[in-house]
């Protein structure tokens, strides 16, 4: 944390207005323990009825306001609820965004138990063994399949129709794996035939490594590429030199 704050301080001095951009691109990571599928169906039903049924229907069959959840699988429920995207905030957001989860871990497990009890199909929560995952292969897969939307360093990116590919930093390993398998929202899914278990673990490992990208060159400037570099070059670089000119040279 100290290294990041130091870098941020340097940036404030150097980049001025640009630091705003950096902080906006770097929401603090919120680690979430991965879900286990040993929740209580009855408690889940109660939670579902009060929290979810107004949009998804009493038996998750879907309504005009929300899609059916039959057969979406445990991974889907866990992803949407544990990232705080569900329940949706009232008000017309263009897409569900990450926010502090409304449910505790136990409650989420109960919800998963209830929804999967209605239809056991759909992808389960992926089990991950990241200890032996191939980081480099993960990088290759990430750049080939994920970087187009989320950016090479996972800071997120703009899509059409006002959609955004979210930054990956706040996501836990489990949530990344779930997203890959289910393809939440406008994201394509990558099933077991596309990404093997090994490949999934490799990608997840690489995404996790992007939480702390190797910024051996100094402050990462938000990892948003040449645009912030240009701003820093103008404001901090040329700006400082213009001040020097102004000091050395005559004013009138």
């Amino acid at each position: 944390m100290t290294r990041r704050s130091a870098a941020l301080l340097v940036l404030l001095v150097l980049g001025g207005p640009f630091s705003v951009l950096v902080t906006m691109l770097h929401p603090a990571a919120a680690g979430q323990p991965a879900g286990t599928a040993d929740g209580d169906v009855e408690q889940g039903r109660a939670l579902f009825t009060t929290g979810c049924s107004s949009c998804h229907g009493l038996r998750a069959e879907g309504t005009r306001r929300g899609p059916s959840l039959l057969g979406v699988g445990a991974a889907s429920v866990d992803f949407w609820v544990s990232t705080g995207r569900m329940p949706l905030k009232t008000g017309g957001a263009r897409q569900a965004v990450r926010k502090p989860p409304a449910y505790q871990r136990d409650d989420i497990d109960d919800l998963i138990a209830y929804v999967t009890s209605l239809d056991p199909d759909g992808p389960p929560i992926p089990e991950l063994d990241l200890a032996r995952a191939d980081l480099a292969e993960g990088g290759e897969l990430f750049r080939a399949n994920c970087a187009a939307c989320h950016g090479a360093v996972g800071i997120g990116g703009a899509l059409a129709s006002g959609r955004l590919a979210p930054p990956l930093r706040p996501a836990s390993a489990a949530q990344v794996a779930e997203a890959v398998r289910i393809g939440p929202g406008t994201m394509p899914n990558f099933g077991p035939d596309t990404f093997s278990q090994d490949q999934l673990e490799a990608v997840v490992t690489y995404v996790e490594s992007l939480d702390h990208p190797d910024d051996r060159g100094g402050s990462g400037l938000g990892h948003a590429g040449p645009i912030p570099e240009g701003f820093v070059g103008w404001l901090a670089g040329l700006g400082a030199l213009l001040l020097a000119c102004y000091w050395i040279g005559d004013r009138e």
Binding site: R143, A148, C149, A152, D214, D215, G217, G218, L221, G225
Partner: peptide, 23 residues
């Protein structure tokens, strides 16, 4: 102090790959 063009984060060039925010 300020990192510029961190190519190790961008990866080697592959004709079929692309990153968001390519400028």
């Amino acid at each position: 102090l300020a990192q510029v063009n961190p190519i190790w984060l961008y990866g080697p060039f592959r004709a079929a790959d692309v990153s968001a925010a390519s400028q």
